[in-house]
Design a protein around this nucleic acid. Structure first.
Lengths: 273, 273
DNA sequence: GTCAAGGCTTTGTCCTGACAACATGACTTC
DNA sequence: GAAGTCATGTTGTCAGGACAAAGCCTTGAC
């Protein structure tokens, strides 16, 4: 267990005016950072997590300069590449900004999390809206041309089809239709109604890697309006998504319809330099 | 200029069956990679670009294994960290997948580009749809509560307001309303009608860093329907976006309305592990 | 007073070397 | 024949050092 004390370093005892650390934004972090070398968790990851929580908790305030990398490495007993790797991971997340000749700075608020492959179930649960699900149908059928193209399978091959209504606070929010390659996931109605599809897939060892999405809008059909308790012809948000695993095989094709009056897609995104 | 020849390495002259490189997916890349040490372009970046174009052009086919990092470094006269940095940048883009003990593999098709901070103008131009713009108004006004909150300024402060109609192939596509902090950008109608707002901002040295977006839908108002040549009450897609620069200051707040019958948001996204 | 030159600080890039963790296939043993 | 074990190959992690490039501030000259 390597630890490090707060306050500044040892170059503050000589000069009367000890040469402020340059930038107007105060530096000299008074945080306690430490790494545990006996832990199997990588050192750079330990450091990154501690910095991230410090930012989240407001201990590292926006605009604040981190100490320079060399000094930080020395304080923690790490090498500079390790510290750089930790910082880089937070830069990739958009929490820090580096400027050569200046230092590394905490980004000025606002930025929270970049866009992730979100699941409606988790989003609702995180927002405290008690999600609930009713399975409308759960069948296997021959892949239509559109489904076959999305999943990258031959037309007419057997695929699993899941139809659900998702509720929040007892109100219908969305109509979810999903197609999965046959045999990929052992779906049962009880499970589908208790949790989200992505959770089930992850639990089954399917690693979600990337997805292709299209978001649009159109008037609701009569059947959709009925199921969503919406006026006929009212606008609905549509989202089509094909999800791929790490090897690039499509593992899911979803075609979802949301009540426009109750739902919007919100996300954050970063510009890569 | 360090260069490297195609074909395999020198361990193929002894054994009758030269011990295939393990995996079923063929390895032994026959690509020509080279780095120019006199160039100011970083070595890792040169390598990353060459690998990326090789993947885009299909020279590196999906599922194919890259040679291992040590050998690749040796062939190019680079060190392993440099090669790793190049590979890592492509992993971050979703083009490659690493698996410990196995190797680095080209991702299996589909994946193209992750979501970027896209500009409608550039998107249309890239799709070959000749975008055109008409400026409706270009004024400065006192910030409304909503605008002030989005831009992080005090209510009532002067802000610039831009209203535009964006056309594609002569058809109206979207109504764009943007608010900018006063004095940030010298906007002129001629420029606004010739290019996109983001291009102007980048050209003015404003670095776009991150953005917060919300996408929804609603019925069009009478005025919107008129401007968009859409039936009254027809569904429109709405997008609100606040863009931040590297220091976290809001540089733009946009409130856009798209014809749902003509436009959908399409994007790719990655899951970070 | 203004502008240019130089020095300092900090991150960016790159190298060398080493060991650990994991996946895979072949071998051995039961 | 099946299961466990070992060897091998690959990426993951980490150290320590060196120089380059860029930003910022101070100093100096005009």
């Amino acid at each position: 267990m390597t630890s490090c004390l707060p306050v500044t370093r040892g170059d503050d005892y000589a000069l009367p005016v000890p040469k402020q650390p340059r930038s107007g934004t105060d530096a000299a972090p008074s945080l306690q950072l430490s790494v545990d070398r006996t832990s199997p968790v990588p050192l750079y990851f330990q450091l990154a997590q501690q910095l991230e929580t410090a930012i989240e908790q407001g201990i590292l305030t926006p605009g604040r300069l981190l100490g320079n990398e060399i000094e930080l490495a020395g304080r923690l007993g790490l090498s500079r590449p390790t510290v750089r790797q930790a910082i880089q991971s937070l830069v990739d997340k958009g929490l820090l900004v580096r400027r050569r000749g200046v230092g590394t700075q905490v980004v000025h608020s606002h930025v929270r999390r970049p866009l992730e492959l979100s699941s409606l179930y988790d989003d609702l649960a995180a927002a405290g809206q008690r999600p609930a699900t009713v399975v409308l149908h759960l069948t296997t059928e021959a892949a239509s041309p559109a489904v076959a193209a999305a999943l990258g399978v031959v037309e007419g091959v057997e695929v699993q089809r899941i139809g659900r209504v998702r509720y929040a606070h007892g109100e219908p929010m969305a109509l979810l239709t999903n197609h999965l390659p046959a045999g990929l996931l052992d779906c049962r109605t009880a499970e589908l109604e208790a949790t989200g599809l992505y959770r089930m897939m992850r639990a089954a060892g399917i690693s979600l890697h990337s997805a292709r999405q299209a978001i649009g809008a159109r008037p609701a059909t009569a059947a959709e309006a009925e199921l969503l308790s919406e006026g006929p012809g009212g606008p609905v948000l549509t989202m089509e998504r094909t999800t791929f695993d790490a090897t690039g095989r499509a593992v899911e094709f979803g075609s979802h319809v949301y009540r426009a009056s109750r739902y919007t897609f919100e996300f954050q995104l970063l510009v890569r330099p």
